[in-house]
Amino acid sequence: MTGTERSTGGSAASWDPAVYLRFASERARPFTELVARVGAENPGVVLDLGCGEGSGTAALARRWPGARVIGVDSSPEMLAAAERAAAGVEFVVGDVRDWAPDGPVDLVVSNAVLHWIPGHDRLLAGWAGWLRPGGWLAVQVPGNFRAPTHAVLADLCRSPAWADRLAEVAPSPDAVLEPAGYLDVLTGAGLAADVWETTYLHVLTGTDPVLGWVRSTVLRPVLARLGDDDAARLTADYAAALRTAYPVRPDGTTVLPFRRIFAVGTRPT
């Protein structure tokens, strides 16, 4: 996934590349800024774990044209789009929680994937173990799980009207670590680490644009549990709450603050 809030294989809901790419430029920026911190010069094997619709994987192949670039994702819909977007790249259907390469690698990239995986600190340490000396690991996760987009939805999922069906898929405020936690994971795995965070102010337009943003991310597994009528009812309540939390500005735009956490590590030679 590129800036994907993408799948690992644990959800029954299918991914729609067209919906996800509605905000392609906003979602691409964190990936670009993540990979800009990677100092690999001539990597032999590059992995994009949770590659989604493949635009980021294609960018990796352009930056390192001599590398064997492999994109891994569990969504057939996303991989179909990826194969069109990134010629010359290998794509593999797999769940990043248990997929493994056939040998040591030079670069592992995972953009907006790990927040879907409870206990992903252990997974991240395992990925670090794949690196050759001089190899790089670069990950980005959303850091907005206490923001209204997620807190309001969590409250709805746990409310009396929905708890019996949705409580277990309510967004968790602790889905990701704080930046210091990722620093500890990478240094504990023997890497020299660079960890930082950024809050983007996305200026959105149109009707209920924040709802449009979350349809392809945090709302997707929730709606997958409901029939059409119930999904419409919950979506209407959620949209109303989002309009209050993210009001339209006088110029007709809506600002969505979005915090992201970045962690890059390299194995010393």
Rank of each mutant, 00 (worst) to 15 (best):
A189I: 06
F23Q: 00
A24P: 05
N42F: 13
W130Y: 02
R260C: 03
Y238P: 03
L177N: 06
T199E: 15
V109K: 12
A100I: 10
P76H: 12
G9Q: 10
G44S: 15
G66A: 13
H202K: 14
V93W: 00
P142I: 09
A18Q: 04
D164G: 13
P179M: 09
G50P: 04
A125Q: 12
V139F: 02
T8W: 12
D194G: 05
P160C: 05
R37C: 14
L223M: 03
E5Y: 15
A151M: 01
T8F: 10
N111S: 12
D102I: 00
P160M: 00
W127D: 02
V248Y: 11
A67L: 08
F31V: 11
S25M: 10
V195G: 04
F91Y: 01
V139Y: 02
G126T: 14
G88R: 07
P250A: 11
L131V: 01
T205F: 03
G119Y: 06
I117V: 06
V46L: 06
T207D: 15
A85H: 01
P221A: 13
V108R: 08
V38D: 07
L204T: 01
G66H: 10
G50D: 06
A128T: 02
F262T: 08
E178V: 13
A170G: 07
G44L: 10
P65W: 01
T2W: 13
D16H: 09
D228I: 13
L123K: 01
V222I: 03
S216Q: 00
A58D: 04
L219H: 03
G227V: 06
A12H: 12
P118K: 11
N144P: 11
D228L: 14
A245V: 00
V152D: 08
Y246V: 00
G50F: 07
S25D: 14
V108Y: 02
A263K: 07
T198H: 15
L49R: 12
T217R: 04
Y20N: 11
L226V: 10
F145L: 04
V152K: 12
